[in-house]
Simulated scan of single mutants.
Amino acid sequence: MIIRKVRDTDMDALVRIYNHYIESTTITFEEDLISSEIMLERVHNIQQSGFPWLVVEMDGQVQGYAYAGSWKPRSAYRYTVEPSIYLAPDIVAKGAGKALYCKLLDTLKTQGIKNVLGVIALPNQASVALHESLGFKKVGEFARVGYKFERWVSVGYWQLEW
């Protein structure tokens, strides 16, 4: 397993992973599939903001990614980020996600970030367990704020503070 910075050549793999979650889960509230061009624009926006975007490679193939972006645009929030992590379905719960997320958190900490706010569409026990295993604490929940696949979805917030 290799964890490294994202490359422009990774976009097809990232899109394959993310589009799976768009098509078949409520983990993301995005409803329309995205292209490699859209993903590349998103990656570049995160990179231009100075935040990390990492991928995990297994057997030479990108199998997941994690990144963080500004939680809110106002400058007073500059020490707070919202992370995202997506894994290829066949490697979920095999340790790659935790290793990738730990590397992301370590990078954020060295950048001077003080708060990381995990936003989780509920229910998602795997994501809750991952966040809590890394020291995140649940700080809130918004009931029925998203609507996808003909059902309402609640969102929970988990905070990690250094």
Results as ranks from 00 to 15, higher is better:
residue 147 Y to V: 12
residue 144 R to W: 06
residue 136 F to E: 00
residue 109 K to S: 10
residue 41 E to T: 12
residue 53 W to M: 10
residue 25 T to K: 09
residue 27 I to M: 11
residue 38 I to P: 01
residue 88 A to N: 13
residue 133 S to T: 00
residue 77 Y to F: 12
residue 35 S to Q: 03
residue 84 S to D: 07
residue 132 E to I: 02
residue 65 Y to T: 06
residue 19 N to G: 06
residue 140 G to F: 07
residue 134 L to F: 03
residue 156 G to I: 01
residue 93 A to S: 15
residue 88 A to I: 02
residue 108 L to Y: 02
residue 90 D to G: 09
residue 140 G to W: 11
residue 124 N to Y: 00
residue 108 L to W: 03
residue 19 N to M: 05
residue 17 I to E: 05
residue 26 T to E: 14
residue 57 E to F: 03
residue 158 W to C: 02
residue 162 W to K: 04
residue 150 E to R: 09
residue 113 I to F: 01
residue 58 M to P: 00
residue 58 M to W: 09
residue 117 L to I: 15
residue 96 A to H: 15
residue 123 P to T: 09
residue 138 K to A: 09
residue 128 V to D: 07
residue 66 A to E: 06
residue 10 D to K: 03
residue 117 L to S: 02
residue 20 H to E: 13
residue 90 D to T: 06
residue 81 V to G: 02
residue 129 A to D: 14
residue 64 G to A: 07
residue 84 S to V: 08
residue 47 Q to T: 11
residue 82 E to V: 08
residue 160 L to N: 04
residue 1 M to P: 14
residue 65 Y to V: 04
residue 55 V to K: 05
residue 48 Q to R: 12
residue 111 Q to S: 11
residue 49 S to G: 13
residue 77 Y to G: 02
residue 139 V to W: 06
residue 123 P to W: 12
residue 96 A to N: 12
residue 56 V to M: 00
residue 62 V to S: 08
residue 66 A to R: 05
residue 130 L to C: 07
residue 116 V to Q: 01
residue 66 A to V: 03
residue 86 Y to K: 05
residue 4 R to E: 04
residue 55 V to S: 05
residue 156 G to R: 08
residue 159 Q to N: 09
residue 152 W to R: 12
residue 101 Y to S: 09
residue 158 W to F: 15
residue 143 A to E: 15
residue 49 S to P: 01
residue 156 G to C: 05
residue 121 A to C: 14
residue 131 H to N: 11
residue 144 R to D: 15
residue 44 H to M: 03
residue 28 T to W: 01
residue 115 N to Y: 08
residue 67 Y to A: 13
residue 95 G to A: 10
residue 68 A to K: 00
residue 97 G to M: 08
residue 82 E to I: 02
residue 104 L to V: 03
residue 68 A to I: 05
residue 62 V to I: 09
residue 87 L to V: 06
residue 124 N to A: 00
residue 13 A to F: 08
residue 134 L to M: 13
residue 48 Q to T: 09
residue 137 K to I: 02
residue 63 Q to T: 11
residue 122 L to P: 06
residue 119 V to A: 13
residue 73 P to G: 14
residue 155 V to S: 10
residue 89 P to Q: 14
residue 156 G to W: 06
residue 150 E to M: 02
residue 37 E to V: 13
residue 122 L to A: 12
residue 16 R to T: 15
residue 9 T to V: 04
residue 158 W to T: 07
residue 100 L to K: 07
residue 122 L to Y: 09
residue 74 R to V: 11
residue 83 P to R: 03
residue 162 W to N: 04
residue 96 A to F: 15
residue 53 W to E: 06
residue 11 M to V: 12
residue 128 V to H: 05
residue 116 V to A: 08
residue 145 V to S: 04
residue 157 Y to H: 08
residue 40 L to G: 15
residue 75 S to G: 05
residue 135 G to P: 12
residue 32 D to G: 06
residue 93 A to L: 13
residue 92 V to P: 08
residue 122 L to S: 11
residue 147 Y to M: 11
residue 40 L to V: 02
residue 36 S to W: 00
residue 64 G to H: 07
residue 73 P to F: 04
residue 51 F to M: 14
residue 151 R to H: 14
residue 49 S to C: 08
residue 19 N to D: 06
residue 76 A to K: 02
residue 69 G to Q: 03
residue 138 K to Q: 15
residue 95 G to I: 11
residue 64 G to C: 05
residue 70 S to K: 13
residue 141 E to P: 07
residue 110 T to M: 08
residue 7 R to I: 00
residue 30 E to R: 07
residue 20 H to W: 08
residue 127 S to R: 10
residue 156 G to L: 00
residue 11 M to Y: 10
residue 93 A to V: 10
residue 94 K to G: 10
residue 19 N to W: 06
residue 29 F to I: 13
